Amino acid sequence: MTKAQQRYSTPKSKNIDEGNPVWFKPIMFGFLLLGLIWILVYYLSSARLPIAVLGDWNLLIGIGVAMVGFLMMTNWK
């Protein structure tokens, strides 16, 4: 190596973003599937399940859980 090459080396970035933690994708897909399953169970049970007292609010809960998964997707790297 020449002296010029020894003086210059490629800068090492210390702030490398390696992506999401290992638990991120399973949690994200879990929320998406849980929301879908919640809505499917509501429709297939003719509004008797998962929580009969809530009635049509079960749809909002299923959509809300799925939305958490969709919002997590925006941070997926």
Rank of each mutant, 00 (worst) to 15 (best):
L32A: 08
L33K: 06
G55L: 10
V65N: 05
N15D: 14
G69A: 02
K77C: 03
K12M: 02
Y8C: 01
L54K: 01
W23H: 06
L44R: 06
G30R: 01
F29C: 07
P21G: 10
F29T: 12
T74C: 02
L44K: 05
G64C: 01
M1W: 12
N15M: 09
Y8A: 13
T2L: 13
G35R: 03
G19A: 10
V65S: 01
I51N: 04
G55F: 02
I27C: 08
S45L: 10
D17L: 05
W38S: 00
N75S: 01
D56H: 12
I16E: 01
L36S: 00
V53N: 12
I16F: 03
L36E: 07
D56W: 15
W23L: 06
T10N: 11
L36T: 11
W38P: 06
N58F: 01
L40G: 12
M28G: 00
T74Q: 03
W57E: 08
S13L: 09
L34I: 06
S45Q: 00
Y43A: 06
I63F: 15
A47L: 05
T2G: 15
N75V: 05
N20Q: 09
A4Q: 13
A66F: 14
T74N: 04
F24L: 02
I63W: 13
I27E: 05
D56S: 15
Y8I: 14
K14H: 14
L49C: 04
S13R: 11
A66W: 09
V65R: 04
G30I: 00
N15W: 04
L40D: 13
V22A: 13
G19W: 06
Q5V: 06
K25M: 03
E18V: 15
L33V: 04
G30D: 03
A66P: 10
L59W: 08
L36C: 08
S46R: 08
I27L: 14
I61H: 06
I37L: 13
G30T: 05
F31Y: 11
I27S: 11
I63P: 00
V22H: 04
K25Q: 10
I16L: 10
K3Y: 10
I51V: 14
I63K: 03
A66V: 09
W76F: 14
P21T: 01
R48V: 08
F31S: 01
K3M: 12
V22Y: 04
G55K: 02
K3G: 02
L44F: 09
T2A: 13
D17H: 11
